[in-house]
Nucleic acid binder design. Structure first.
Lengths: 190, 190
DNA sequence: GTCTATAGCGCGATAGAC
DNA sequence: GTCTATCGCGCTATAGAC
């Protein structure tokens, strides 16, 4: 991947995060990269293609890990903790800040239906994992829909932290996030 | 407040939430309300004024409660729990779905600086409350910046749940959210 | 691979009738 | 209080030179 192409993705993600997809113009992206606006279209066929590339980086790998976590043997609590830790670590370690891909608004735009469906599958998997944990007596009685929404909100908050630039190490930030979620779900262990 | 005026706020909040501030046109808002586009400008002097009204409903009351929680006597854990429960209950009980006010993008637009400052003060207060809890030995050793970001992410997730329409009661949803956060922060109580 | 120039469209907001 | 008509602007994307 060319340097300019990666710079476009990085700058677009930061701008989408701060100003939204529609609130970010291709002129602003180009100015951040240091080229003129039409030059973007040499690397991406449209503004939507830039956004889809960010979603792919952010979501495809996560979805593979979530499917594996649901199918794996072992305690639901341990599987959920390992999945969340891996996901947060990837967020804090990645070369491209990803907050622009989720905190933003474009998943519900026309033309992004496929990505909305992937987000829906991710939500279903995490709800199922939470429900397993409740059935196993590891998690408190909580609405899995509420729990999944809060996990997603926490994940986005870590994308925000990474985009802002965090003082702590990727491993420490991921650990704090994963431990927080698991303590939040776990029944008191006397 | 006239019925049309409240309908404008409600529909605008839902549209801002799904499509972002810039991704929502005044023509779309007007169509959802059932009037023509220029009719909006009889109730609000600009599109920005609609957004500011939503921010006021969402943020001003929250900020008052947060300041009171920081100044109140008593255990940091109990004060934080009471604050979060009240805030989530207001989110789930309000007449206007508020997700559009925070999940969206417009706080960083030019002209919204005052609202960005209020969000900053809210973040500072919650970080201070978390730090107090750590110092008191009630909370685990966690970066207060990370903890505050996660609490904010959870709060936004509850706005999303309310906008989507949740099966559980406002009280039950607020309790599940507040309990989750406090368990996530608390040291194990053996 | 990057530029200048521009086409074509949708936007927020205003004017003025009723 | 709501309408029709419209202005001026900024947007995405394309054409074509270098």
């Amino acid at each position: 991947m060319s340097e300019t192409r990666e710079s476009i993705l990085r700058q677009a993600s930061i701008l989408f995060w701060r100003h939204g997809y529609r609130g970010t113009s291709t002129r602003q992206i180009a100015a951040s990269v240091g080229v003129t606006q039409p030059a973007l279209f040499h690397f991406f066929k449209s503004k939507q293609a830039i956004a889809e590339n960010l979603l792919a980086v952010s979501l495809d790998e996560t979805l593979v890990k979530a499917r594996a976590a649901l199918a794996a043997p072992g305690s639901p609590a341990e599987r959920l903790h390992a999945y969340v830790y891996d996901d947060l670590l990837a967020i804090h370690s990645g070369a491209i800040p990803l907050a622009g891909a989720h905190a933003s608004d474009f998943v519900h735009e026309p033309g992004f239906e496929a990505w909305a469906a992937k987000l829906g599958e991710l939500a279903d998997i995490l709800q199922a994992l939470v429900a397993e944990g409740i059935a196993a007596g590891e998690f408190v009685a909580i609405d899995p829909v509420v729990a999944e929404a809060m996990i997603a909100g926490i994940t986005i908050s870590h994308m925000n932290l990474n985009t802002l630039g965090l003082a702590t190490s990727p491993e420490e930030a991921a650990r704090q996030g994963a431990d927080f979620i698991l303590r939040g779900l776990r029944v008191a262990t006397s």
